[in-house]
Amino acid sequence: MDLWRRALDPWGQDVLIGVSWDLMWAAIIVAAAFLIGHAVWIKTRPSEAHEATEVPAGIPERIQRHSLASRVFHWTMSASMLVLLVTAFVPVLGLQFAWVEIHWIAGVVLTATIIYHIIHSIGWQDFWSMFQIGFSEGVAHLKHIMSPKAPAPKAGKYPFDHRMFHHANVVVGLGVIATGVLMMVRIDTPFWTPNPYMLADSTWGVVYVIHGLCGVSLILLTASHIYFALRPEKMWITWSMIRGWVDRDHYLAHHDPAKWVVTNGAAPPSVTEGTPRAAETAEAEGASPEARSASE
């Protein structure tokens, strides 16, 4: 298997031009293996019975998890990502169509949604609810995976695995967007005259390699994301991204009300979405979520 595609530049010098398409196949195979493996593994695990918890006071039946704006963002981004993946890789797989235009337009949409998302999340959302590290939560999560007996940790608004997925997406997504925007300089778009000479050939090679590596990674990430979204036991999360709310049972089963504070009635969105302050405090105090739950 080749990792890179190399070529002779116009001066006959060896130059990197991108990742090998073998990597795409590798990603597809790894993704498939992981999904099948996970499905089988889940089957072999005893089903998790969530003990009924007492309903603390003031917790509404429906808890707003994603605002309409967030949902629109999510689905727009998903659509553009799917379009990008299909237009990127399906032609390589052999089904040929005019993909370039669709690809860059989807790329522009993706970029716009991400920019919106960044601004929105910094200015109006509980930014740190996503970017808390939660090391002990991770350990607990790992223990839970290893042994069904270990209880799944209860998370704040975003569970540990979601946060990890998001972080991976941040890295890969920003990589693919940054390189993608650069690459648009080279193709015929209404924005500017194509110019392949903005960067040196060798630099372009690196740009293409990053774009390729990120793109291939997105096959893995997206495949697993869709897979989990469709798993029956995770459907409540998927529904929350459609309807915007989770019901109280799921909330109490999977979330720690201390970390994801919800109040009864029509709470202002900032509160509903969690406050930065709450998360910051929790982390700063160094108290593990478990410890806090226990103490309450």
Partner: peptide, 9 residues
């Protein structure tokens, strides 16, 4: 490769 040299400015 990645370039159309003929379309360069």
């Amino acid at each position: 490769g990645n370039t159309c040299y003929a379309a360069a400015p």
